[in-house]
């Protein structure tokens, strides 16, 4: 123990996190923009049409990264909420709260792009399929988390109650991930996120991986800006704000 935990305590310090988040944001934002632009060109122009789905498969370049974000953000949010709950770390609660809105947005994007992909390929916008239903539950978890927070005036209570909800909702994450294997799902099995070799030629795969990278970096940048806002809102009278804002 001893000094090894110094880094952990620094992450509990609002001034430190506020300053660090500000320094890191551009280092996530610019690589994110470059990755997404390169992936767009690779996915829409360079990648060959799919032998079954023709040009329609290109929806994957927005659908799969959005779905990845929706689940990854939830995992980050629940982890931050758990840290906040266990170590009573306010910054961790602020981080969890910063995740929810972004996660909800990209859950909607994954659902809508999935519907737009499902119509030409499956013949329907929506089926009550395990994967689709679990993803819809994810949206309700995000909305429940946001609603619960806004419904409680006392910030400390809002933090704790919403953290418990976030942690309970973690059950849904493996259900989303393994739904296509546990049940007879209409949704295709993973073609990238699996242990064996991806079932995709390189010209298709590289833009997709770039898009995953770009979306992940984008989330980090946007989340850090929201975290700074959240920290400022929480620090009512701290003297460090005077220094940070001047």
């Amino acid at each position: 123990m001893g000094t090894n935990w110094a880094w952990f305590h620094r992450f509990g310090s609002p001034p430190h996190v506020y300053r660090l988040a500000g320094l890191l944001t551009p280092w996530f934002a610019w690589p994110a923009a470059l990755s997404i632009l390169a992936a767009l060109y690779g996915g829409l122009v360079l990648a060959p049409p799919d032998y079954q789905q023709g040009e329609g498969f290109r929806i994957i370049y927005v659908h799969a990264p959005s779905a990845w974000l929706s689940v990854m953000i939830y995992a980050v949010m629940a982890t931050a909420a758990g840290v906040g709950l266990i170590w009573r770390m306010k910054v961790a609660h602020a981080a969890a709260a910063s995740c929810a809105g972004i996660g909800a947005w990209f859950t909607v994007v994954s659902l809508v792009t999935g519907m737009l992909w499902g119509k030409p390929m499956w013949g329907t916008y929506w089926v009550w399929d395990p994967r689709l239903t679990a993803q819809l539950v994810l949206l309700f978890l995000y909305l429940g988390y946001i609603g619960l927070r806004s419904g409680i005036d006392d910030l400390g209570r809002a933090d704790r109650a919403s953290a418990v909800l976030a942690l309970v909702g973690v059950v849904n994450i493996p259900i989303i991930r393994y739904s296509v294997e546990w049940w007879n799902s209409i949704h295709q099995a993973p073609s990238v996120m699996k242990m064996a070799k991806p079932s995709m030629p390189m010209e298709m795969l590289v833009p997709l991986l770039l898009m995953f990278l770009g979306f992940t970096l984008y989330f980090a940048a946007v989340m850090l800006v929201r975290l700074r806002a959240e920290i400022l809102r929480r620090e009512r009278s701290a003297s460090w704000i005077r220094e940070a804002l001047r």
């Binding site: 023709g54 929806i59 927005v62 809105g101 972004i102 947005w105 994007v109 809508v112 030409p120 946007v222």
Partner: peptide
């Protein structure tokens, strides 16, 4: 897009809207 335009471009549009809106 070989007949998929009505599905493909709205997908890209909503993703773009989400990216910009969150910024």
């Amino acid at each position: 897009m070989d007949g998929y335009a009505a599905f493909l471009w709205p997908s890209y549009l909503i993703t773009f809207v989400a990216i910009v809106a969150n910024i």
